[in-house]
Amino acid sequence: MNQTRLPSMLSLAAAVATVVTLSACTSMAPHASFSQTSLPDTVKVPSGHMVAMETHATGELTYECKDKANMPGQVEWTFVGPKATLADRHGKAVGTYSGPPATWQATDGSKVSGTQVAVAPSGPGNIPFQLVKANPAVNPGAMMGISYIQRVALQGGAAPATGCSADTRGQRTVVPYQGDYIFYKAV
Rank of each mutant, 00 (worst) to 15 (best):
N2Q: 10
T4W: 00
T4C: 05
L6T: 09
S8K: 12
L10R: 13
S11F: 06
S11C: 09
A17E: 01
A17T: 05
T26Y: 15
T26A: 14
H31F: 07
F34Y: 10
F34S: 05
P46F: 06
M50E: 15
V51L: 06
M53D: 03
T55P: 01
E60Y: 13
E60Q: 15
C65Y: 07
K66W: 02
K68G: 01
K68T: 06
K68Q: 11
K68N: 11
A69S: 14
N70F: 14
G73I: 07
G73A: 11
Q74M: 14
Q74D: 12
V75C: 05
F79A: 14
G81M: 03
G81T: 04
P82Q: 01
P82V: 04
L86W: 01
A87D: 08
G91A: 05
A93E: 15
T96I: 04
P101A: 09
A102P: 12
Q105L: 02
S110E: 06
K111A: 01
A120V: 06
S122A: 15
G123N: 03
G123A: 00
N126R: 07
F129P: 02
A137N: 11
M144I: 04
G145K: 07
I146Y: 00
R151G: 00
L154N: 11
L154W: 04
Q155M: 08
A158M: 02
P160N: 03
T162W: 02
S165H: 06
A166E: 10
R172W: 00
Q178L: 08
D180R: 14
